[in-house]
């Protein structure tokens, strides 16, 4: 087996970035899979890559002819903002309610 790149410490950091609360068993599975995947990802290092190789963000090149122009600045209100609000888990006076964000000021 390849060496573990995603150590338990690094894994904890990623979990924090991802904002997950994980069970121990779940965490163990995820960390093991990540390390397996990294093993596959390291295949990329074998690719001979001329240093000036550009990146490709989309496969199909967006030439001028096929690129759509930006949107005109015309107001068109969405007819049902209440449908969006109806999805919210908790609301009060038209606001969405969330828990507090403490310790902002020290």
């Amino acid at each position: 087996m390849p060496e573990e790149e995603i150590t338990p410490e690094l894994f904890e950091h990623l979990v924090e970035l991802a904002a997950f609360e994980l069970g121990a068993e779940e965490a163990e599975y995820l960390r093991a899979e990540l390390n397996k995947q990294l093993n596959a990802i390291h295949e990329l290092e074998a690719v001979p890559l001329p240093p000036d190789t550009p990146i490709t963000s989309h496969g199909v090149p967006y030439t001028r002819e096929i690129s759509a122009p930006p949107r005109e600045d015309h107001w068109q209100p969405f007819p049902h903002p209440e449908k969006l609000m109806a999805q919210a888990p908790e609301t009060e006076d038209g606001y969405i309610v969330v828990p507090d964000i403490p310790h902002e000021e020290l």
């Binding site: 949107r71 600045d73 015309h74 969405f78 609000m85 006076d93 038209g94 606001y95």
Partner: peptide
């Protein structure tokens, strides 16, 4: 006149919360 990425009005000054949304 409109927001940067949608057709909502850019300016919501004085409007009730969560009404100028899409």
């Amino acid at each position: 006149e409109t927001k940067i990425f949608c057709n909502c009005k850019a300016d919501s000054w004085g409007e009730p919360p969560n009404t100028n949304i899409c």
